[in-house]
Write a protein that binds this DNA or RNA. Structure first.
Length: 1055
RNA sequence: GGCCAGGUGGCGAAAUAGGCAGACGCACGGGACUUAAAAUCCCGGGCCCCUAAAGGGGCGUACGGGUUCGAUUCCCGUCCUGGCUACCA
């Protein structure tokens, strides 16, 4: 009997002491020495909870503790849906958990929280159907998610748990909204932030917004509708700062109101009256990205476009910083690329085209001159140019000028027509009487189309001639003006100059309507390009032609020169545009954050358009009580049905107020939760600045790629506003980002409906269950095995299918099967529930399998028998240390206290190095392989040194923490291994004495030689030449060259 | 249409700086233990060909080229799959 075993048996109870709760003594008899995941996992989860093992102190460390480097590791928090976790969720969670457990052992101070993105439509849809309050449903769902996450043994600090639906949380969501509401963007402000970086552009308090003179003078006279004065030049404005509030200046109420309206137009949160996507079935508006193929993403309901008053957030003000500040982040290139694409910055020029007054020429004259230099340019055009020459390029164009945006000002001489978007303000003015009916009809039709409908018809360009003309500022040429819905009102200026020779869209349009196509760019001679404008547009850069004095210039030089010339002539200006639009920030639902905003009402109870914000102290604005949750059926928000007590109040100054009844979208709560986790119980501030400074930015953020653009862009935007306003010290929230790959369902075998009908009897005879599924273009019949649990997914197993020459057949038949791996989804009934996996194999096996499947970032199919494989590995590890034929959990007799044999020591140190390096690069699949190799080797050893096994258990801990704790305890330790230092390796032990080196003849391996590890080229060659097979291969040949890479290979090049 | 990622045995995958392709695991085949089964342990294996065997040869990382002594890896072209995006002037 070995000594250790005796020691161990002497313990009154294995789990006595404060660290580990005791087992019921009666149950001890039933403890099987076999690896029993269920027992071990329940025990250690209880132990971690009792001892608060993973709790992170809620204070910023000082003294020695402050020397520990911090590590903030965050999962994208889940929406707690009614169906609970599926196996895709724990993929990222296991990865972060491994990193955290490893980091704790490496001596890092770790923050690892979890919470709930809990507002959202499903709970409210459920409320509409059943009358159950969404809060109740949400809480139930959270409880399910939490139970499942705890079951998997993740090392979250649960004391930091939060839900976006907690009034204590959304109080601060509302507070941040008020900060955004209180901010305007000063694009020219140059400043240095707390990070020491100089930036141009800053979000500043609205009280600091300069008010132009014409606003300040609005009490005395009417402001001019257009002005050529710059809006906020130093000479023409006075600054209204915080201490200089309009109310204190003794200004008239009219001026006060003008100032307030002016401020409201400049806030980062503002109300707009633009067309939006209204979904009657869901009773809310939807953002463009919430609509797929013209239907709502959730539910697939139809969507119509209509103008509605909506809250918008001015994210476009931050477009440039959101794009450029990506550079410093440790994110994948593809995600950065997607964000940059979404922001879509382009540089070009705005150019003004003057409209030709109607009736200036006869129709005949017009036809004759169309597109050509007019002989006698109208005097008005010359006068206008002269005015521009002296006054410069105005902020807003005159009422008879079309302003266009182009990225190719070098093609101005190739403009043969212009297009206004149907919503453009000048359409009515420019349209001639003759064209009016056609134009009106076109506008009516296009207003019915959503942006998506417009693109669906992309192949066929549509449009109508307005009858009007404009004059090209560079040569005075008359160009016809059309309207067409391929030009969007929401991008650039809503109008374009069309250059069909050098733009594909314009080319298609010109071809459709028989418009002139003119070449003004020639390909560079060296390119060998041949331009055939009869066939296609030439959109590349090249050399100018047919462009007057600019002929011969390269595209780049031309752009530069013409921008200067236009600018000097007051006809154009360099401009930057973004694809990114302002963020539609309101929804019409109950289950979202109410806005902390009041609307002023006049004596008749009508809104005046003026607003007041709730004070920070009065937050949160709670939800009103509702008798039912049915949508109003109109675009009127749900909350408009609230009680008058909630909806109305009278301010101290006697003004009647009505509450804002829109609610915030689900994105709001997830925009800043990473901040609250650092200080989730603070009732004075949304986060203590010291804690923000210590914990931020998040060091590792892992989640699905579906959030690559929106969530990450929105949070970065909020973070930057908070940064500008001095509430956070870091310019970016997430330093390193990793997207885990999606987990697909196990292979599902199916046949066509025809085959199924024909062979029905065969399938039924085998007891297979058919399931009709729709794929993109066809119906298929999936074949499944029967299951007790209706939710369980039981596809055909490998031994029910024979595979030959790439074809699969149902075993014992000639019936050909199609195998597919699909996304897991309810409708396909191929979702794997972690509860089932844990029940059969345990949490450690599930965690291990999630990581063993393949690289974290890759898409990979779930295979149930893969879980079996890692489960067997855990069993082997168990038997490596534990005597599985004993009555209790005691060490195996093979485990000894003596010094390890050199080969055991060597493989241990190799394993330590490999596992450490692999965790560092998030390559968990190969780390697990290395631990399997270690286990396979050690299992074959008659005696296994404790000195080798102990470090191995530490290596296993981040991956399979329950079994690791259990084994650590069996090895005689009484405290958790959570904070035991990570093993280090001795590089000297990694070096082998001898190495096997392949010998190649002309690159083909012909022999292998075993040589001392430090053999040089000459020694390698000598050893190789001594081999019989090498001599045979070299016989009668001339050795042209010998390539020797010491330690790696030897290659004879022969003739 | 555009962009991005990927394509390696029957399957999931590995090869970290151009150097033995297929580590590790699944499934499969053979054996041991067992009354039997499960569990466990041992052995085998990319494909094809020659050989009684020992052994040997050819082909092989989607396909076609290229660079190199040597390519899964680098370059050019083609095909396929998945994801994102969709008239952004």
């Amino acid at each position: 009997m070995n000594k250790l075993r005796g020691d161990y048996d002497d313990r009154p109870d294995r789990y006595d002491g404060h660290e580990c709760p005791s087992y019921d003594l009666n149950r001890r008899k039933h403890i099987m020495p076999r690896y029993d995941a269920k027992r071990i996992e329940a025990h250690w989860q209880q132990s971690w909870e009792t001892n608060q093992t993973f709790r992170t102190e809620d204070t910023v460390p000082t003294g020695d503790a402050a020397k520990k480097p911090k590590l903030y590791v965050l999962d994208m928090f889940p929406y707690p849906s009614g169906s609970g976790l599926h196996v895709g969720h724990p993929e990222g969670y296991t990865a972060t958990d491994i990193v955290c457990r490893y980091a704790r052992m490496k001596g890092r101070h770790v923050l690892h929280p979890m919470g709930w993105d809990a507002f959202g439509l499903p709970a409210e849809e459920h409320a509409v159907k059943t009358g159950t309050h969404p809060r109740e449903t949400t809480e139930q769902n959270i409880a399910t998610f939490k139970r499942q996450l705890k079951m998997l043994g993740f090392s979250y600090d649960w004391t930091r748990e939060l839900a976006t639906t907690d009034p204590d949380y959304y109080r601060w969501t509302q507070w941040i909204f008020l900060q955004i509401f209180d901010t305007w963007y000063d694009a020219d402000h140059v400043w240095t932030g707390p990070d020491g970086v100089q930036r141009k552009g800053k979000g500043r308090p609205i009280a600091e917004l300069p008010i132009p003179d014409d606003i300040l003078a609005s009490g005395e006279c009417q402001p001019s509708s257009t002005t050529s004065e710059p809006l906020a030049s130093a000479q023409s404005v006075k600054t209204a700062n915080a201490s200089d509030r309009p109310v204190d200046t003794g200004r008239s109420p009219e001026v006060m109101e003008a100032i307030r309206r002016y401020q409201d137009k400049h806030r980062l949160a503002y109300v707009s009256d633009a067309p939006v996507n209204w979904c009657p079935a869901l009773g809310t508006v939807l953002a463009n990205e919430e609509i797929i193929d013209g239907k709502s993403e959730r539910g697939g309901h139809p969507v119509v476009r209509m103008p509605l008053k909506q809250w918008m957030l001015r994210i476009t003000a931050y477009a440039d910083r959101l794009a450029t500040e990506l550079d410093e982040l440790d994110w994948s290139d593809s995600i950065k690329f997607m964000q940059r694409n979404w922001i879509g910055r382009s540089t070009g020029a705005e150019v003004d085209f003057r409209i030709e007054p109607h009736g200036a020429m006869s129709e005949e004259e017009s036809q004759a001159r169309d597109g050509r230099q007019p002989s006698g340019t109208p005097a008005e055009f010359e006068t206008w140019k002269a005015t521009r020459q002296s006054n410069g390029f105005p902020r807003d164009p005159e009422f008879d000028v079309i302003r266009v945006y182009t990225t190719r000002p070098d093609t101005l001489f190739g403009v043969t027509y212009m297009v206004l978007s149907p919503e453009h303000a000048l359409v009515q003015k420019i349209t001639t009487e003759g064209q009016r009916p056609a134009v009106a009809e076109y506008i009516r039709k296009s207003s019915l189309k959503s942006d998506l409908d417009r693109t669906d018809l992309a192949k066929e360009k549509t449009g109508v001639f307005t009858g009007g003309y404009a004059l090209n500022p560079v040569n005075g040429a008359r160009v016809p003006v059309w309207i067409a819905d391929y030009v969007l009102i929401s991008y650039g200026t809503g109008a374009i100059m069309a250059v069909p020779g050098h733009d594909e869209r314009d080319y298609e349009f010109a071809k459709t309507f028989g418009l002139t196509i003119r070449q003004v760019v020639a390909p560079p001679l060296s390119s060998g390009h041949i331009v055939d404008l009869g066939n296609a547009a030439f959109t590349e850069i090249g050399v100018a032609t047919n462009s007057g004095k600019y002929d011969g210039l390269s595209t780049a030089d031309f752009k530069c020169q013409i921008s200067n010339h236009l600018s000097q002539a007051g006809l154009g200006k360099e401009a930057v545009n973004y694809r990114l639009r302002d963020w539609l920030f309101s929804r019409q639902r109950y289950w979202g954050e109410p806005f902390p905003i009041w609307h002023e009402l006049d004596a008749d109870g009508n809104p005046t358009g003026l607003m007041r914000a709730d004070t920070a102290e009065s937050l949160p604005v709670l939800h009103p009580h509702m008798d039912d949750f049915k949508p109003t059926g109109t675009p009127e928000p749900m909350l408009a049905k609230a009680t008058p007590e909630w909806l109305f109040k009278t301010a101290a100054d006697g003004v009647k107020l009505k509450r804002e009844t829109n609610s915030m979208p689900q994105w709001a709560g997830s925009c800043w939760y990473y901040l609250r986790f650092c200080d989730n119980k603070n009732s004075d501030k949304f986060i203590d600045p010291a804690k923000e400074k210590y914990w931020l930015p998040v060091d590792l953020y892992i989640g699905g790629a579906e959030h690559a653009v929106l969530h990450l862009l929105y949070s970065r935007f909020w973070h930057k506003v908070l940064f500008d306003r001095g509430h956070v010290s870091s310019p970016e929230p997430f330093q390193k980002l990793v997207n885990q790959g999606m987990i697909l369902g196990d292979t599902d075998y199916s046949v066509s409906p025809e085959v199924f009908a024909r062979q029905r009897a065969v399938f039924e005879g085998m007891g297979l269950i058919p399931l009709v599924l729709k794929t993109d273009d066809a119906e298929i019949v999936a074949l499944r095995n029967p299951a007790d649990d209706p939710d369980a997914y039981r596809p055909l197993t490998e031994d029910q299918v024979t595979k030959e020459k790439g074809k699969a057949h149902l075993k014992g038949t000639e019936i050909e099967l199609t195998g597919r791996t699909d996304k897991m989804s309810k409708s396909r009934k191929n979702v794997v529930n972690p509860d089932h996996v844990v029940k059969d194999y345990g949490a450690d096996a599930l965690r291990l399998y999630e990581m063993f499947m393949g690289p974290l970032e890759q898409v990979k199919p779930w295979q149930m028998n893969g879980v079996e494989g890692v489960y067997r590995f855990l069993g082997r590890v168990w038997r490596l240390l534990i005597d599985d034929r004993a009555e209790a959990v005691i060490l195996s007799a093979a485990v000894v206290d003596t010094a390890p044999a050199e080969d055991q020591l060597r493989i241990l140190h190799k394993t330590i190095k490999a596992v450490t390096d692999d965790i560092d690069r998030l390559a968990f699949n190969t780390a697990i392989s290395r631990m399997m190799e270690f286990t396979n080797f050690m299992s074959g050893q008659e005696t296994r040194s404790k000195a080798v096994l102990e470090p191995f258990v530490l290596l296993l801990n981040p991956f399979a923490p329950h079994i690791a704790e259990e084994l650590w305890h069996a090895l005689g330790h009484s405290t958790t291994l959570t904070y035991v230092p990570w093993p280090s390796y001795d590089p000297a032990l990694l070096v082998e004495d001898t190495v096997e080196v392949p010998v190649q003849i002309n690159g083909k391996v012909r022999a292998k030689i075993i040589v001392p590890a430090n053999s040089d080229a000459a020694a390698l060659e000598a050893a190789a030449r001594a081999e019989e097979i090498v001599q045979k291969n070299l016989e009668g040949k001339t050795v042209v060259k010998v390539v020797a890479v010491p330690g790696r290979l030897l290659n004879f090049v022969v003739k």
